[in-house]
Computed example of a mutant assay.
Amino acid sequence: MNMLVSGGPCLLEVGRTVTGIDNLCNSSVLALQRAQKRVGRSLRFVQGSSCEAVARKWTFRGGIDAVIHFAVFKAVGESCQEPPRYFDNNILGAIALMQAMDRRGVHWLVFSSSATVCG
């Protein structure tokens, strides 16, 4: 099964074929390289946002069977200061990704809307 993971390469560790898409606004190419080195496997990587039509179109050309969508902004304080930015990325980005999935006949989705830990 070929998996698209927006926002991270975590499935490499369980032996899946992974395509990652991330705009790297909260990460870096170095972190991606370290993850690949740690697990001894590489992934196909698209640098871009799940909101960007060009990145979505290129990503789905590789035969994706399922999507795990982690690419959301999650800073609670910042979300209150910049609600339009969070809406565009988290809501409109998810809708755009699901529309691309539908056009390609991909019907398996895991959507993680938040990874915030409040303590």
Rank of each mutant, 00 (worst) to 15 (best):
C118M: 13
Y86I: 13
P9V: 11
W58M: 14
G48H: 08
S79K: 05
A53Q: 11
G20W: 07
K37L: 05
G48K: 04
E52S: 13
S79N: 12
Q33A: 11
L109H: 10
A94Y: 01
L109F: 10
D65C: 11
F111I: 02
L43F: 10
F73Y: 14
L32M: 15
T116Y: 13
D102G: 11
G63A: 10
G105M: 05
L30A: 14
G40F: 06
V110Y: 04
N89E: 07
A55D: 09
S113H: 06
I68V: 13
Q47R: 12
S49G: 05
D88M: 12
P84A: 05
S49P: 10
S50N: 08
G63D: 04
K57G: 04
D22E: 14
K37A: 10
S49M: 07
D88W: 11
D22V: 06
M101Y: 07
L12R: 01
R16W: 03
A53P: 01
V39T: 13
G40Q: 01
Q99A: 11
S112K: 04
R85N: 12
I64Q: 03
F87R: 08
F60H: 08
G20D: 04
I95M: 09
S6T: 15
F73C: 08
Q99P: 00
V106Y: 09
A75Q: 06
L4A: 06
G48Y: 07
S114I: 03
E82S: 09
S42F: 02
E13I: 00
L24C: 03
D22G: 10
A96H: 15
P83K: 07
E82Y: 13
A75T: 09
R16P: 02
S114L: 06
N2W: 01
F60R: 06
A53M: 02
V39I: 01
L30G: 11
C51V: 06
F87A: 14
S49I: 11
G62F: 05
S49C: 02
S113R: 07
M98N: 07
G48E: 02
R38W: 09
V76T: 13
R104G: 00
R85V: 15
V72T: 12
P9I: 09
R103Y: 01
F73S: 12
L11A: 15
A100H: 01
I68Q: 10
D102E: 15
V5E: 12
A66P: 01
S6E: 05
T19L: 05
R104D: 13
I21N: 05
N23L: 02
D88V: 07
R85M: 12
L32K: 06
T59M: 11
